[in-house]
Design a protein around this nucleic acid. Structure first.
Lengths: 214, 214
DNA sequence: CGGGGCGTCGTCCGAAAGTAGGAGTCCGAG
DNA sequence: CTCGGACTCCTACTTTCGGACGACGCCCCG
């Protein structure tokens, strides 16, 4: 009763690497390979693997669409997405598509193998590196407004409020009857205090934490 | 260079169980135990463990507060929270308190051991059971867009969504695997379609209309 | 009285953002 | 097959932002 795996990647070298890597594991068996999304769908239908190891970037049909189609044909399929970057926007979309998990290509091999077993067993999984990111996002959303906001002066708050309305520096200047260079001073300082990069992030922060509601 | 672990639980039997469980692992060593939160704090300060395995429900000082204090004394500490229930409240609060991970007491032993290694290595971790819930939270997406937003193409929507997260053009490019000049093209066109001046206004619009909730 | 925080206003500079226009691919509809 | 829409990428340009300075006046507080 070994775990039957389908490896999908457009680079033959990568597929070979995984095949080799998994060959040492007695309870895991690579039963098929596919070089693009379309192949992946047909192969999945043909050999009904326990786990599909799927690259996300592929010709013909990308990993997302392939995931959707495979799951449409067999909702029981377990699909483990592979990617190179962890800030990958495709993470979310892959999970939406119904993928069971997510592993970085440069995670250590043992982690990949453990991941295969985990999803085969029915659990969902994110690679630790991805998890760290998710946790970070997660805790940020659920945190009360950072007390750093309290360190803002009255004037900085004025500017902050107008920033969250989408005003430019010049507009803020006109609204507050000060020069735009002064506005820039305030903006720079509030960004520093809140540890943000630009006004865009400031707006996001304000809305996430419910600042300036109403 | 084994991983030095401090086990914290108010039940001596549980501590003994973990000690036994971890004794078989050559690279893991239980260097101390504590029966409540206060003890945990002093023990952590005394023996400076690599990983603290901490129950969340305890007399004197609960796992959350103990976590905060240990981290206040040494921000480098890795704390792995143990609990019997996968109630979200604990997850949030433990992560807020700065815990590196979260494991259910009835997760299989191998998972616990792997978790210890993972957090010792510096990665964050959620038990698969918890991860599934987190994933669910994160994959909640788009809803009915208000009018003009419908004229946006799929790609423009992708870019729009990342803008509302505070991403720069370069970051969006990396996330979507396209060049930043292409991102700028999409940005310009979506701003035109929505009759907005800059990304800041786009973020405001998105949040005001409840686009891209969560 | 002297600091220190705050608000105001500058300059200089580099990095982003946004605009304009062109151009190539792919794909589906007519 | 042609046409057009979507997507991609480019060059070249202007404007805006943000950072790093410094400066001045104000007012409060030790």
């Amino acid at each position: 009763m070994s775990i039957r795996v389908l490896v999908v990647d457009d680079q033959a070298m990568v597929r070979a690497g995984f095949r080799l890597l998994l060959a040492d594991e007695p309870d895991i068996e690579v039963v098929a390979e596919a070089g693009d999304g379309l192949e992946a769908v047909t192969e999945a239908a043909r050999c009904d693997p326990d786990v599909v190891l799927m690259d996300i970037r592929m010709p013909e049909l990308d990993g997302l669409e392939a995931t959707r189609r495979i799951l449409a044909a067999d909702p029981e399929s377990r699909i483990l997405i592979l990617t190179t970057f962890d800030l990958d926007e495709y993470v979310y979309r892959a999970l939406e598509a119904g993928a069971s998990g997510f592993v970085l290509k440069d995670d250590p091999p043992e982690q990949l193998i453990a991941a295969v077993r985990t999803v085969a067993h029915g659990d969902a999984l994110l690679s630790p590196a991805v998890t760290r990111r998710v946790i970070k996002q997660f805790t940020r959303v659920h945190q009360a407004p950072p007390q750093a906001v309290e360190t803002l002066t009255e004037r900085e708050m004025d500017v902050f409020r107008l920033i969250t309305r989408g005003y430019s520096n010049a507009e803020i200047g006109r609204a507050l009857f000060i020069s735009d260079t002064t506005v820039k001073t305030h903006v720079t300082r509030l960004l520093q205090k809140l540890d943000l990069r630009d006004r865009a992030q400031a707006i996001v922060l304000a809305h996430q934490t419910g600042l300036f509601e109403t």
